[in-house]
Amino acid sequence: MRELVCIVCPNGCTLSVDEQTLAVTGNKCRKGVDFAVAELTCPTRTICSTVKTVFPEAPVLPVRVSKEIPKDKIFDVMAEINKVILDKRLSRGETVIGNVLGLGADVIATSSVLVKKS
């Protein structure tokens, strides 16, 4: 049995997972099971960061990955994010890096601060 803390929501359930059968207990909801199974097979995480821009009013723009990426690729994806120098005024949800490192996730802008009128 392995003990995990579910990070999907603020409840932070303490989960017990059977490493052979992948049976999960301690979860309050279905998401806990998915989290526990993923954690034992292929743990994934969301990452949030910023990219450098050429615009003085917002020298960096917040971004995140559009879906979770394997945990062991976090710093590889960060390296890609760090290479960007954004010269387009993207809106929230628009893609900054498509299919980053072929992981099937995009790096997307999470703010429209660059297109705000005021």
Binding site: T46, C48, P62, R64, R92, T110, S111, S112, V113
Partner: peptide, 10 residues
């Protein structure tokens, strides 16, 4: 949904 702070605010 799991939003970032700016997404939630916007």
């Amino acid at each position: 949904e799991k939003l970032s702070g700016p997404e939630y605010a916007e």
